[in-house]
Design a protein around this nucleic acid. Sequence first.
DNA 1: TCATATTTCTCATTTTTTGAGAATACCGCC
DNA 2: GGCGGTATTCTCAAAAAATGAGAAATATGA
Lengths: 257, 257
Amino acid sequence: MAGLARYMAVLRLFSEGMPTWTVAEMADALQVPQSTAYRTVRDLLSEGLVEMSAEARYRLGPAFIEFDRLTRLTDPLMRASADVLRAIVHGAGVPGVALLCRLYGREVMCIADFASADASFSPSYERGRPMPLTQGATSKAILARLSGKRLSKLIGVEAVEAMRPELAAIRRAGFCLGRGEIDEGLAGIAVPIVCEAEGLVASLSLVVESHRLAGAREDRLRHLVMSAAHEIESLLNHDHQARGPLLPSGEAVGGAN
Amino acid sequence: MAGLARYMAVLRLFSEGMPTWTVAEMADALQVPQSTAYRTVRDLLSEGLVEMSAEARYRLGPAFIEFDRLTRLTDPLMRASADVLRAIVHGAGVPGVALLCRLYGREVMCIADFASADASFSPSYERGRPMPLTQGATSKAILARLSGKRLSKLIGVEAVEAMRPELAAIRRAGFCLGRGEIDEGLAGIAVPIVCEAEGLVASLSLVVESHRLAGAREDRLRHLVMSAAHEIESLLNHDHQARGPLLPSGEAVGGAN
DNA sequence: TCATATTTCTCATTTTTTGAGAATACCGCC
DNA sequence: GGCGGTATTCTCAAAAAATGAGAAATATGA
């Protein structure tokens, strides 16, 4: 293992179930000598990607929080959708959670969420948690708008074949409704969001308790999410125009902050 | 530049003022040939630390969001304080923002914040934003509980000398009150939080509009923040006991999730 | 289709990383 | 203040990887 991959391999060891590691454990898990593991950890330490916990144990460091903020402030999707998520949840009139999700490697990840104050449930989709690509309205809405080539690479040709009618239906309808596909008792209404110019494929979803989705309300909520998604899309395109597809030449190269 | 530093140097280029970069710009900024810059970006790309934006421009990638979540779920400080921040703000009875901050290199960074629904202001301290070490009640509360040696390393011996009486007063009183030190018109009440066993030095603050801090209310809010901070401290120590200072031997090494 | 800009590749050279163990620093404890 | 054990850093030659300049390939757009 070389270069960045070596460092990421260490960082990927940390998990909810195992949040702190000793150097000996890392060396063991990664099959490298301890002296190498120590050197790697020392580098990560000095960048704040890892920090000391109690007694010879290490945990993830605070640098991620700093970069997360930068992402929140600069990612076009998050910028365009921050207010919209709030508006959807308020407009829904029932307890609900709004989600903005996107492709992340071979998975789908929520990058922004907003729950109504009276939402007593929380969907499995939550900010920063990778989720399977082929289950749930949220994920399917994304798949529906991927190019065939990209889709095949991600899930394989045979899986594409199996999903083709379903994805075509989503493209035609402009939304995807899922009931209990991911979380028992919850239902999701998901709408794709695409911005060619920025290379973005994402989805906006509203998750509510299944039993709230009676006939008329289902229609209302679907329209709510769809128009919100279109609003985000047009914000994305507008921002893209505004800053120009090329250099944001007005802004200084030194950067602000 | 070698190893991790090479990759971090690229990541550190991205800022609020300059959120996307071309490879040529990176190569120029870091004084390396383009072929090297391309290789570095390719590695970052494959780990999701960077991603393509429009037309030959790159931006920070979604991997940070994933690690941020892990941090939120596993960092002892954030775990212990999540509910407490909410409780402080609700208990305050005036518009306010609760902050949990900690050392981050040579700066102080907020790692969790919570604003009351009626807070029409937002303090400069916000989650993930590095702030100066020696200004503001929030930062001073942290400095007050650092060892002399560590303090000298951070701000220099002469600066320590200058702050000594102030920091001693904070230690004695158990809190620090700052009015308009950082943000005009805002005041902060900050209380240090220390957990020796985990090597943590942090502070819990409540930021309100200065004019709300009349005599009796000031006392009440101060007590509110102080008791909340002590609650977090005892949670930290309790958790530390519960998991044991050494191996969490019950949990599998494979990790969950 | 051609022209342009972006990205990857090649390869000899330079630099870094590696691994095993020794040396050192650090800790609690008496 | 020294002791015993653990954590961390250091050493050095061998092995591996990064570097840089330019060529080649690929994508993009008119």
